[in-house]
Simulated scan of single mutants.
Amino acid sequence: MVDIPKIDLHCHFDGSIPPEVLCDLASSRNIEIPGGSLEGYRLYLKETKNCKSLVEYLERFDFPIAILQDEEAIIKCMEALIENLDKQGLVYCEIRFAPQHHTKQGLSQEDVLKALLQAIKNKKDSCKIHIELICCMMNFGDVILNEKQNWETIDLVEKYLHRGVVLLDIAGAEGKNMLDFEKFFIRAREKNIPFIIHAGEAGDSNNVRLALEFGALRIGHGVRSIENLDVVQELIDTKTPIEVCISSNIDCFVFNLEQHPIKKLKDAGVMITINTDNMMFSNTTLDHEYELLMNGFGITRQELIDFNLNSLHAAACDDVIKQRLSKLF
């Protein structure tokens, strides 16, 4: 374990739950476990690195989402994730989730959020880590498929902003249809809701440019900005942080380790933060990401600290929390 204060700004709830917790809940709810058992599921997760496509990778979400449809399951999974992050030495994490994913058996988006907030409250005294939430809208490939649900997510963030929720986001099938979703960010700006955008992962550098035009405070992934030096320069000029997730990029066929542009982006002056994305699916932790950086790119311990200071600067929590966390560095 790298003994430094650790911050993760890009951690998906449904992709980061400890497998043993999911399998226990699945058994009690008569939900079929991929692989048939906990050990079978662990083998199934290891095979994630052998997925043939991003579509196959995204199918990994079906199992946790099937479980996360009642308040008890949501609370237990969030508590387990918080405990896991705390044991890994994280001092701060922004956990993102799509409320609309968890409404298939009667919960409202607000019910889902309240369950997560309850879990955070339950662990406040026993865990040192500070947790904030990010609510994601979803891109399913066509804006009309879930337009109503995305408007509901914006309203939910407006209601709970600074009450456990710090940002709005959009995740899912990033492609060439970014402009179709601009109207949601226009609404967010009208409501003074701060937002970030997944861009430059499955989609190209133009999506990063559009995300900046829309007003994103940070870019989720953003690594394909390297394809256009003008976009890289815009990231530098606007001091917009990007949320780099190396293991996830490898698993999702964005870049392999040798091709990954993190060093080029860092050396150019882009503000880099290091994150896990989906700990369960990529079988990773922040410490594992740090090992990849040190062994693959010669990143030093001080540079890892600098990345975490970038994350602290980019975090969406209030200044009181930032000041408290800054004393740990």
Rank of each mutant, 00 (worst) to 15 (best):
D230Y: 09
T153N: 03
Q105I: 04
A211K: 00
L179I: 15
K183F: 07
A315T: 14
G89W: 03
Q233L: 07
Y41S: 13
L217G: 12
H102L: 06
V208E: 01
T103E: 04
Q109I: 13
D24V: 14
L45E: 10
P194V: 06
T153G: 00
A98W: 04
L38N: 07
I31N: 08
L179T: 14
R224H: 01
I95N: 04
L81W: 05
N283A: 11
A216L: 06
F329I: 06
M280I: 10
L156Y: 02
L325M: 06
R163H: 15
N30I: 08
Q118R: 15
N283H: 12
L25F: 11
N308H: 15
D24A: 15
K121W: 09
Q100K: 11
K128A: 13
L107I: 08
L81I: 01
F13K: 10
V143C: 11
V208G: 05
N122C: 05
L212G: 04
Y92Q: 04
I129H: 03
E190G: 08
L235D: 04
L25H: 10
E79R: 12
F255H: 10
G220Y: 01
I246L: 13
L85A: 04
F214I: 03
I197T: 00
A211R: 00
L81F: 03
E213P: 00
Q233Y: 06
L133N: 06
C136M: 07
Y160M: 05
I299N: 02
E56Y: 10
I321L: 13
K87C: 07
L167I: 03
L156K: 03
P194E: 05
Y57T: 09
K159M: 02
Q323W: 01
I262S: 00
D86W: 02
